[in-house]
Design a protein around this nucleic acid. Structure first.
Lengths: 190, 190
DNA sequence: ATAATGATCTATCACTGATAGATTTTCTGT
DNA sequence: ACAGAAAATCTATCAGTGATAGATCATTAT
């Protein structure tokens, strides 16, 4: 049971999130101001604070949506691929290249969201669990802890490549993906 | 031949850089404002612009100094260690833990500095070259390109661990260092 | 229809980076 | 040592930021 008022409220909240993401990708996160967001939804600035405690919470909402999409991507490519590790790595890097501002908010910008804690949003946990599932299967890990540890490593390596590339620190080199997956395969077969 | 005026100018410039770094480590980069910096050196705000084109160039100056220190660290630990890879990795991670704000500016924050380009400052090139030297020797790479490619990978993996840990995305796990170095050793002996 | 509730606006605060123009200090040539 | 030129520094200001208080308007329930 939702009232028209509640429906309008939720629609507008999603609009704010969508505009924040679009502006961030087009002009960077510094262009995402409360006044700009208010202008996009054709309201006054303080209305933003009816939906979000502060500016950081707007970013956090975009981040949660980003993790939900990343989880879907991981699950999709994990099932149908004959080379799950490579497929996973490429999906991850493609995600970072196609949504650089979103990726930046998810993984490098300071955030109000907590990770690996009690109050970690479900979207964030799900992404990690989806990763653990694929890595655990592919590398033949026995215990969950082993799979989780290897997943953290795999994630860190992928993130390192994505992050340094996005920040302009290293050029895009395709052979690094093969190197990473090859290493993990050799390592886990020992 | 330097005039007293030039000496004073350079001393003050270094003071600005030092204060920027100290404030960033203590209160985060958002606390590093031009007015705050001016206050620290007991001048008015526009004086900062006598030394730096804008705020970003202050950060860039701190970053260059950071890379110079990182290069020293790499060179030190590379010579005297009996396990250069592990030592290098730990040095790198320690550097990121002891100077989180500096590391953030060097590797994740958007910056005016260009990497791997013609106008890349010498401090940045030197860090990479120092890394290539150690990795190339340790992994027994024949060509410089091979060593450079493996160095990029090693760097990305270390950075991934450092970055995700600093951003609160993964807990600090000591076994990841051993995993990374073990993988590279196995991989390069094939 | 009226009273209560919630939503929205205007106006404001303290802060930011950056610049123009006036003023003061420092240096230079005599 | 002193006048004039040059450089450095200051005050004042601009446009923009996040955030909030209080007045006003719209919606809802009785």
């Amino acid at each position: 049971m939702t009232t028209p008022r509640e429906r309008r409220y939720r629609i507008r909240e999603q609009q704010i999130i969508d505009h924040a993401r679009r502006i961030a990708e087009a002009e960077g996160w510094s262009a995402v101001s409360t006044r700009r967001l208010a202008q996009e939804i054709d309201h006054s600035q303080p209305v933003i604070y009816q939906h979000f405690r502060n500016r950081e919470h707007v970013v956090a909402a975009v981040v949660r949506q980003g993790f939900a999409e990343l989880t879907e991507l991981i699950r999709e490519h994990a099932q149908q691929a004959d080379a799950p590790l490579e497929s996973l790595c490429w999906s991850y890097l493609n995600f970072s290249w196609q949504n650089p501002a979103l990726y930046e908010a998810m993984f490098t910008r300071p955030t109000a969201l907590e990770f690996a804690a009690e109050n970690t949003p479900a979207e964030l946990r799900d992404s990690f669990e989806a990763l653990v599932e694929v890595i655990g299967n592919e590398a033949g890990m026995k215990t969950y802890d082993d799979a989780a540890a290897l997943t953290e490593f795999f994630w860190a390596a992928c993130h390192g490549l994505a992050s340094l590339h996005l920040a302009g620190r290293i050029p895009a080199r395709q052979d690094q993906v093969a190197r990473l997956c090859g290493m993990i395969r050799i390592y886990s077969s020992e």
